[in-house]
Computed example of a mutant assay.
Amino acid sequence: MEPADELRLAIIGLGKIARDRHLGAIAGIPGLRLVATADPRSSLTGVPAFPSLEALLASGTGFDAVALCTPSQIRARLAAGALRAGKHVLLEKPPGATVAEIAPLLELARRKGRSLHASWHSRHAPAVEPARSMLASRRIRAVRIEWMEDVRRWHPGQDWIWEPGGLGVFDPGINALSILTRILPQPVFLTGADLLFPGNRSAPIAADLRFTDAHGLDGSAAFDWRPQGPENWTIRVDTEEGSLTIEGGGRRLLEGERLLLEEPKAEYDAIYRHFAALARSGECDVDLAPLVHVADAFLLGRRMLVEDFA
């Protein structure tokens, strides 16, 4: 793909996240064009629609890349099919249902000379890079994460998210972990977790994590899908020089009580600009650190039963 070329995109999976975030970002960036969708139950007026990726590939429709917005449980199979067909691949978060299934995709992408991008939209929030710069030279003492939202608002009727591989409350919680693994100067690792499962579901509705680093960091995270009031997406980092707090999922940055930054988020615009640059260069960008922490939580986590979810 030459720098001046148009990147022709197909969206695979035309659900809530595709409609809420991907479509607007694609439409607003010069050099990107949506040329097809693939979904067995949904379509867009004026855009060629197919019931599956396989049907799209068989149609002969010209396109360069796919954005996989399907449930995570089927994403690896679809990514492999697209890469074998010579397409660049953008993976919504989480990149897959398991950690190990991503390595073969990365090997396939490199063998085909195609780009594979495991996107973490929250890393593109406006407070993230300033926080990363400020923390680079500070001695960090503690981290406290609170990530609370109402599952009925953000995932209405999405049964797949409660199935194995759907992650449950870690679907939003992994956003916090993607920020954490970007802003801290030292890697962290989990030391324990409590996972709260509704009696009628196969994925947790809440989770409490404990983590540390090589220097004895005191870290904790609380994820919960049960609150029905305003969302609380907050990361507080206590250092020897004072505290930094990321609020609103990355919209605001405070040092102590002083507001340093407050900006609207345009995360998916940034994702697609980055993906287009990767496609031009044929490079890959796949960081699995947030997914590794989720996998570790399931390895270490104590399972606790709570009331059924209805």
Rank of each mutant, 00 (worst) to 15 (best):
R8H: 09
I12H: 01
G13E: 03
G15T: 10
L23Q: 06
G28M: 09
G28S: 15
P30K: 13
L34T: 07
A38C: 07
D39S: 14
S42M: 08
A49I: 00
S52L: 03
L53S: 01
A55C: 06
S59I: 05
C69Y: 07
C69A: 15
A82R: 00
R84V: 11
G86H: 03
L91Q: 04
A97W: 04
L106G: 05
E107P: 11
E107N: 14
L135T: 10
A136I: 06
R138W: 11
R141Y: 10
E146V: 12
E149P: 02
R153F: 07
P156G: 03
G157A: 02
G157E: 01
Q158H: 09
G166M: 05
V169L: 02
V169R: 01
L177N: 02
P187M: 13
D194R: 13
D194E: 11
L195R: 05
A203H: 10
I205V: 15
A206H: 02
L209D: 04
G216R: 10
G216I: 07
L217R: 11
D224K: 06
P227G: 08
T239F: 04
E241Q: 13
R252M: 02
L253K: 00
L259H: 13
L260F: 12
E267C: 04
A276R: 08
A279F: 04
S281T: 11
D285F: 12
V286C: 15
A289Y: 08
G301A: 06
